[in-house]
């Protein structure tokens, strides 16, 4: 079987996988990182979003072998070693942006990338559009949008621009 060598949450792994193994299967089944979820089979739901080399990616759309040499961050790798949560995780809790928790890991990973990609600020409409690839059946999105907006100033270390604050 072919091998893939990759870094996941700062730790190096070399794993044998079938050619058809998806990145999400590698994470869940070979590395036991079950925080990344599988919610669909058509890349529609976003529950499996992780960061690959710093960008969000649906890990069901990438073969494990394609991640060779890549650095992957999953929901388990977001908090600091001392357990301090990432500001996005904190704001999800603060604003009750999760209920059953199943979409949450993917939602958080997508939201972090969205905020990072928009240092100029994000309007509510931009947040909603930016999260279009992630389905949530519980919250109605209202509190997720609030949490992402609240995480922006914490992640960028400055107040949100006036236009985006609404």
């Amino acid at each position: 079987m072919p091998q893939v060598a990759l870094t996941v949450n700062g730790k190096q792994h070399t794993v044998e996988v079938e050619g058809r193994t998806l990145l999400v299967e590698l994470l869940r089944e070979k590395l036991g990182l079950t925080g990344t979820h599988v919610g669909c089979d058509t890349s529609q739901c976003g529950a499996c979003v992780v960061h690959v080399d710093g960008r969000s990616l649906k890990s069901c759309t990438m073969l494990a072998l394609q991640a060779d040499g890549c650095s992957v961050t999953t929901i388990e790798g977001l908090a600091k070693p001392d357990g301090t949560l990432h500001p996005m995780q904190e704001m999800f809790r603060e604003h009750h942006a999760l209920q059953c928790g199943f979409c949450t890991p993917g939602m958080v990973m997508s939201a972090i990338d969205l905020v990072q990609m928009h240092p100029e600020g994000l309007t509510e409409a931009e947040i909603r559009e930016g999260l279009e690839g992630n389905l949530c059946r519980c919250t109605g999105y209202h509190n997720i949008v609030k949490a992402v907006a609240a995480a922006w100033p914490l992640m960028h270390g400055k107040p949100a621009p006036a236009a985006a604050a609404e």
Binding site: R28, L33, T34, G35, T36, H37, V38, T74, I75, E76, L78, A79, L85, Q89, F92, R93, E94, H96, L98, G101, F102, T104, P105, V108
Partner: peptide
């Protein structure tokens, strides 16, 4: 009050059947 279940869900430590 903030939810007691959130820390595990937010850190990927939920325990769903397929896990």
């Amino acid at each position: 009050v903030k939810r007691k279940e959130d820390p595990r869900f937010l850190s990927g430590r939920g325990h769903y059947t397929d896990d």
